[in-house]
Amino acid sequence: MLYKFARPFLFSLDPETAHTLALWSMSHFGGFIRCNPMLTDKPVQVMGLEFPNHIGLAAGLDKNGEAIDALASFGFGHIEIGTVTPRPQPGNPRPRMFRIPKQQAIINRMGFNNHGVDNLVANVKAARYRGILGINIGKNFDTPIDKAADDYLICLDKVYPHASYVTVNISSPNTKNLRQLQGESELDALLGALKSRQTALADQHGRYVPVALKIAPDLDEAQVTNIADALRRHRIDGVIATNTTLSREGVEKEKHGGETGGLSGLPVREKSTTVIRQLSRLLAGELPIIGVGGVMEPEDAVEKLQAGAALVQLYTGFIYSGPGLVKECVAATREATPA
């Protein structure tokens, strides 16, 4: 109800300004909110972890982990923060975020703007939240692509003790050449390095933290097949499908529809679900899929589960509909899954 009144004001502002204001408000007043995931009536086991429900917050909304406690109060079964890089970086020049309300979409070209991994870890340590926390890691924009693994390993080392699971983001369209890491040889080398380090860190900390890979929706079936094979070969714990799309199908004629960046929201729903279906068939339950992309109403969350996802994440739908969407999606997915 509160969001219903706040949204017209927030949508009257530049999207990034509204985003910053909302996060600032949550980070400063979140301490007054009881930090406890509320919707915990149907837990689900994924990646060896018990999630209170099927619905989580996707990475990108809280890049630096500044509002974890406030976000936890909305009923998410898990929260994913980041993407974070080894060193702080400002991201791409503004403006770099654009709403397309008619299509319930957002285009962003943020460019992994964040305060760096050390800042994120400090924020995680300060938070009271003790639920499932995913930390999404990436590479700095000026790290050569052939040295990208070094950045991911730096981040993995630093976030490992504080994460429930770690997501490796190789699919943002807003860091130059990043999606090259989805190529067969590049991916094989990266996953091999990550799995080796994960094994060493598990021994060091006496605790196994799952690693998931986040992929793009702009992949053909052969590319999805190669990725599925690599995930199995390197025993990666999960896959998140999908990131934003470079396609402009459905928004070509809309204001801001031609802006550079990744498109999220309703127009990416079917693309994301198609990749989930392909992965589900190829992986045959060997590792879980987390579905994200275009979940604007409860039926979309159910569709992702029916396509083969074990969990579903929200971002753009949360921006357009507010926290009430979390409760609605939790209820819908509870009713749609076996007892």
Results as ranks from 00 to 15, higher is better:
118 D>M: 06
45 Q>W: 10
336 A>I: 10
247 S>F: 11
290 I>M: 09
13 L>D: 11
168 V>G: 04
187 L>W: 00
234 H>E: 09
133 L>I: 01
9 F>K: 02
29 F>G: 06
216 A>L: 05
265 G>V: 12
103 Q>L: 04
190 L>H: 02
75 G>Y: 00
173 P>F: 05
130 R>T: 14
40 T>Y: 08
198 Q>M: 11
99 R>Q: 00
2 L>H: 12
8 P>S: 11
195 K>S: 13
188 D>P: 10
112 F>C: 03
257 G>P: 12
16 E>W: 09
270 E>R: 14
147 K>P: 00
273 T>I: 02
250 G>T: 00
309 A>C: 12
252 E>K: 15
296 M>V: 02
209 V>L: 05
56 G>W: 08
248 R>F: 11
36 N>C: 12
46 V>L: 10
81 I>T: 15
240 I>W: 00
48 G>P: 13
106 I>V: 15
248 R>W: 11
62 D>R: 00
180 Q>P: 04
301 A>Q: 00
203 D>L: 14
299 E>L: 09
104 Q>Y: 06
266 L>Y: 09
262 G>W: 01
310 A>P: 04
258 G>Y: 11
202 A>V: 12
314 L>Y: 00
251 V>M: 03
299 E>R: 14
152 Y>Q: 08
284 A>M: 06
175 T>H: 01
30 G>K: 02
132 I>S: 04
242 T>W: 06
214 K>Y: 04
94 R>F: 06
73 S>P: 10
186 E>F: 08
41 D>S: 14
14 D>N: 14
106 I>G: 03
170 I>M: 01
20 T>F: 02
216 A>N: 02
208 Y>P: 07
73 S>N: 08
300 D>P: 07
16 E>G: 08
256 H>R: 05
246 L>P: 07
295 V>H: 03
270 E>M: 13
278 Q>S: 11
229 D>A: 15
132 I>P: 01
7 R>W: 04
165 Y>L: 06
276 I>M: 10
215 I>C: 02
196 S>P: 04
65 G>P: 09
143 T>F: 02
125 K>T: 03
164 S>M: 02
222 A>V: 15
197 R>K: 14
184 E>I: 10
309 A>P: 09
239 V>I: 15
334 R>G: 00
142 D>E: 14
118 D>E: 13
243 N>K: 11
105 A>Y: 07
268 V>L: 15
189 A>M: 10
99 R>W: 04
288 P>L: 10
69 D>G: 08
102 K>R: 15
96 R>I: 09
110 M>N: 07
326 V>F: 02
16 E>R: 13
319 I>A: 01
128 R>P: 09
246 L>Y: 07
260 T>L: 13
323 P>E: 03
244 T>S: 13
131 G>D: 02
35 C>L: 07
160 Y>A: 00
129 Y>H: 13
281 R>I: 10
72 A>D: 07
1 M>H: 13
6 A>G: 07
23 L>T: 00
66 E>M: 13
316 T>N: 02
221 E>G: 10
3 Y>R: 08
148 A>H: 00
61 L>C: 05
164 S>Q: 09
104 Q>K: 15
65 G>R: 03
96 R>N: 14
245 T>I: 05
242 T>D: 06
176 K>G: 06
5 F>L: 15
293 G>T: 09
76 F>W: 01
112 F>E: 05
32 F>K: 05
227 I>V: 14
106 I>Q: 09
88 P>E: 04
324 G>W: 08
58 A>W: 13
116 G>H: 02
82 G>T: 08
30 G>P: 05
211 V>E: 01
